Simulated assay, not measured.
Amino acid sequence: MDDAVRVLAGLRITALTGAGVSTDSGIPDYRGPDSPPRNPMTYQQFVQDEAFRRHYWARNHVGWQHMHRTHPNAGHRALVRLEERGLLAGIVTQNVDLLHEDAGSRNVIDLHGRYDRVVCLQCRRVVSREHLAERLTALNPGFLESVANDVADIEIAPDADAVIEATSHFRPAPCEFCGGVLKPEIVYFGENVPRARVEAAFALVDDGDALLVAGSSLTVMSGLRFVRHAARAGKPVVIVNRGITRGDVHATVKVDAGTSEVLAQLADLL
């Protein structure tokens, strides 16, 4: 921690956050030391197979209820404090849970999208996830009640996917404007992040004097590229994460600990 404070002191920081930032809000991460094995649905599976889509929407209809009730934790609030004091240029987050915005962060790039919106793959119209929830409930009366007894034990993934098995009877909703396929406005595995969003994220990294990575294993290139970019530019890179990350080789300082406690201490000490 002392090394992290020494490296970041007096610098304007850009933060890159991952699922580990939200674990203390009750949203499990993908690759933390205590995380169960996960096999998220890919973009190709979703667009090519109706059965996969039905299975996804049934699970998401349950998981969305949980995501909708989560709240920011001390780590999210610490980043807000840093931004309010002019020490944080902004946040590039790999999370789709919107907890940074809920906490009060203003300059946030939701790299992988956001769970509260749905897009039609045909006409590209966007509607709120809350509106879709009303349609799905009407199309599937009694479905949520049928799994209510198990909700406390249902595992919710970071993209609001709930681990339930009985989904073959679930009826997904088509786009109400053109009848096309609806998809959450999040970037699936195997799908590319929109170019404009990537360029904005690189610009935000360039705007900072240092990069602070919090709660990401940096396993996928989507996040790792920003660490490599900062390192090539000669910017200090501080990584806060439980366990090893793919970006450790580029780290000026690595803090192997939970993000809530460390970010709160950084906000106090910087």
Rank of each mutant, 00 (worst) to 15 (best):
A78R: 07
V237M: 10
L182S: 01
P158R: 04
L99N: 09
I164P: 05
I186C: 00
S128E: 12
V62H: 06
W57Q: 01
D153I: 09
D248V: 00
A15W: 01
F46K: 08
Y115P: 00
P33S: 12
V253R: 13
V96I: 14
R232P: 00
R81A: 15
G26L: 03
T70N: 02
G113F: 01
Q265N: 06
I13F: 10
R85M: 08
E50G: 01
V213I: 10
N60D: 00
N140A: 13
F143H: 07
I27K: 01
D268R: 07
E50F: 03
G26V: 02
R129P: 00
A166K: 15
A173F: 03
V147Q: 09
L263M: 11
L270P: 00
S35H: 02
V21S: 11
L136P: 01
N107M: 08
S168D: 15
Q65H: 05
G18C: 11
A173L: 05
L224T: 12
E176F: 13
A173T: 02
A78I: 09
K254I: 05
V253K: 13
R135N: 03
C120P: 04
V7E: 14
L8K: 13
I156M: 14
V238D: 06
D209C: 06
R114A: 15
V255Q: 12
F177G: 04
E185H: 09
C178I: 11
V96Q: 03
